[in-house]
Design a protein around this nucleic acid. Sequence first.
DNA 1: ACGGTCGGCTAAACCGGTTTAACCCACAAG
DNA 2: CTTGTGGGTTAAACCGGTTTAGCCGACCGT
Lengths: 359, 359
Amino acid sequence: MGDPKPTIADVARAAGVSKGLVSFVFNDRPGVAPQTRARIREAAAAIGWRPSLSARSLSTRTSFALGLVVRRDPRVIAADPFFPAFIAGVEMGLTGEGRILVLSVVPDADTELRTYRRLVADSRVDGVFLTDLRYDDRRLALLAELGLPAVMIGHPDRSSAFPVVNLDDAHGVRQSVAHLVGLGHSRIAYVAGEPQMVHGRRRRDSFVDAMTGAGLHPDRVVDTDFSAAAGAAETHRLLDAASPPTAIVYASDPMAIAGMGVVHQRGLRVPADISITGFDGTDLARHVYPSLTTVVADPAAWGREAARTLLQLIAVAEAPNLELPAAELLVGASTGPPSHADRTPYPAHYKETPCVDAL
Amino acid sequence: MGDPKPTIADVARAAGVSKGLVSFVFNDRPGVAPQTRARIREAAAAIGWRPSLSARSLSTRTSFALGLVVRRDPRVIAADPFFPAFIAGVEMGLTGEGRILVLSVVPDADTELRTYRRLVADSRVDGVFLTDLRYDDRRLALLAELGLPAVMIGHPDRSSAFPVVNLDDAHGVRQSVAHLVGLGHSRIAYVAGEPQMVHGRRRRDSFVDAMTGAGLHPDRVVDTDFSAAAGAAETHRLLDAASPPTAIVYASDPMAIAGMGVVHQRGLRVPADISITGFDGTDLARHVYPSLTTVVADPAAWGREAARTLLQLIAVAEAPNLELPAAELLVGASTGPPSHADRTPYPAHYKETPCVDAL
DNA sequence: ACGGTCGGCTAAACCGGTTTAACCCACAAG
DNA sequence: CTTGTGGGTTAAACCGGTTTAGCCGACCGT
């Protein structure tokens, strides 16, 4: 009954050894006779002892926790499809027992940095995930200074000592452009995400590259904050232009869906009048009408591998960079050839992008 | 410099007192002379000492962390607008320094219960948030047995010793029905969420009540798992019926948006042929076309108040139940009168539900 | 027979706080 | 002048592990 919870001393006594030896055994240290080892394990199992995490934390200065600090506008966070899936993936990577995830959502840069400082000051985490990397990201210097292990989700703008787990999202953007060009579009707009975010700008850059590579002018590129509201507003602006686009590539599914709403609201048809593509491959994108052509990434896998990498980094002080399968275009019904008048003069020499089927 | 981080002993020495007294001061215990108190605080500030969390955890058996275990199907979690906002709100409620959030995402009931057990076995958290309460929820008994403080997000199916922080979502559902009835609808369907979840079924029940209260038959009620896919599938089924509904009330925005997709796909118009309402009040709902009539709740406020309540419960072993402002209907463009043939014989005696304006 | 090495193990210090028992001293009451 | 009271303070035990220094005995080579 209400036994006051066994301690390592109880196990030691039961096995007839010293506390230290019990500790050795449970930390897989060499220098313990096999039979003694077995006897200790047996005694521990019989008593039902498990080492106290708090005590271990105190003497080893380890928290057995991983941290994720998310800096996002509260308005945007609710719609973002990335983090929940990413976190679910992290959980998978933590399966090996013992480690948990500490999550913090902060509104601005100062709070973000303060949060990291607190996390290490209180040694609440053994390492962190760096998501939404920005240009001149102050976190990189801070974490290096604090000596906190970290793994970067996506490539940073500069080289850094932290390992990278990357998922080539630019590939999906290039495929989107190729797909649209193949359909005969030439006036293609891009509604980008936050330009301060490395991945936001990289996707935009790859759009620009793909366009120029196709001999097209990448004008009609606008930045947003990833929100549905911004997506809608920019869509209005694009359509108000003297020579509106015949296709719009959005940097996220929520923006694309909001953009589609604007197009419909204006009495235009998708894809007859305007083709639309998104980014994320959300479940919802498959169920709007017309179903969204979008780029599917696998944020859960990203989280899982990031967790594994971080655990390895913490364990052996180094971990290799990891490249995940690239984001792929999933062609839906929201893209089609432009109306005849808008066709490119020469039939597209781009071959149709292969369609990745949904599961 | 690389000073090995000051400890309480350093402070004691600097202030010319014993370690114990320093501890007393920093725990606001009575029985310390005011001037001594000041001297100790001064010395601590000068040295830059902050008590070690690990050491405190060990001796006080407190983790200074709150836990949230989310059990959701990975497929649904990405689309769910509730948790990110709720978590952001929790963060607000934690502002008072010191406490952090531990998050765990689990796929099934067994893992869920195991996770709670581990959290207390390792005393990782001082209390937890209970979301997505289910009927005969095994967590209630488990947590009571483990003696872990908890606060329930929404009312449970049975009485429990844990405090409740509630947000009346049923009110919004009733408003939805009243709004539709007021427009002249009588064949109103309801696409519910998970029937095992208390709030899922309560919303459904309040739909049924509102319908019978209006003298209508609440047939056309279907259960789902909250996913967009299920929302779409059930919409198809409803529309295939011999006497299809003229309005559909959905238990979530993603389902409503997916349902709207199905309606459009079938060549029907919203709201001319079918009216649609959602639930959540997501940003995206305002930007689809036509803009969704939906019920807006404030999950961030919910999280904030839940956090405060939990902190109070932990601090003084009891906390009052809290009732937040009810979820309110926000009328958009997705609802309108049914086509003439489908009007209710007697003009509606329900007055129009007041429209809550978006910010 | 003897010094040296090495595997196996223990005692004790240590991590950095909290908490309890006891002590000292000043002051009030008897 | 004694005794009691109680505020202010300290020393030491304690939380439950990890880690280091060192001890003991067996086995080795010469």
